[in-house]
């Protein structure tokens, strides 16, 4: 009973917050609603007894990724509304709705899953974090190390790309230009 209430509540809130992210004009609203949606998605993970995945989702997505976006906001002008010429909104919503309908029809079809056997079932008597660690560090050790290397490369490239000409701020330059234009007028 509680599971159903939680599921439907989280689904409505997640889809609503993500719709706000997709449809709003303000970047700050988009970012905060995206962070809220991520929190509710971690709620799904806790419902699915994937505790460690839920905690990782909270730490990495809501913590690290959102903090990175918030830092990047300082480079872009976040307070101004975005001006976009969105052409043919109806076509986009029609295509999105059709794809949503198609996915729903595919997913509510009965699943032929009788001959699917689980390769790594959760270990008896161990918690979720323990069994995840056992599988991750035995069967998935090489992908894990490759992921670590990928994160290192991403970190170095992020530092190099963003670190050039760090000493002059972009937004203050823009403000100075705007002020000069106003003085000329």
């Amino acid at each position: 009973m509680y599971e159903q209430i939680a599921f439907y509540l989280f689904s409505v809130l997640t889809i609503g917050l993500f719709l706000v992210t997709v449809l709003t004009k303000n970047i700050l609203y988009a970012m905060t609603s995206l962070a809220g949606g991520m929190v509710f998605i971690s709620g799904f993970f806790f419902l699915l007894e994937a505790d460690f995945l839920g905690v990782v989702q909270l730490i990495v997505y809501v913590g690290a990724v959102m903090a990175l976006y918030a830092f990047a906001m300082m480079f872009f002008d976040a307070t101004r509304d975005i001006k976009e010429n969105t052409t043919s909104n109806y076509l986009v919503f029609f295509l999105g709705g059709m794809i949503a309908l198609m996915l729903v029809i595919i997913f509510i079809a009965p699943i032929m899953g009788d001959n699917i056997q689980s390769m790594y079932p959760p270990i008896e008597g161990a918690g979720n974090a323990q069994s995840v660690g056992l599988v991750l560090f035995t069967k998935y050790l090489v992908p894990f190390e490759v992921a670590a290397l990928m994160l290192l490369v991403a970190m170095i490239s992020g530092i190099i790309l963003a670190g050039k000409k760090m000493d002059n701020s972009l937004t203050t330059q823009e403000d100075i230009i705007i002020e000069k234009e106003e003085i000329i007028k």
């Binding site: 690290a64 976006y69 990047a72 990928m150 991403a154 970190m155 490239s157 992020g158 790309l161």
Partner: peptide
């Protein structure tokens, strides 16, 4: 993958 994508992409 998403975390590294965000790092490189934001740079």
């Amino acid at each position: 993958v998403a975390a590294s994508e965000v790092a490189v992409g934001l740079g």
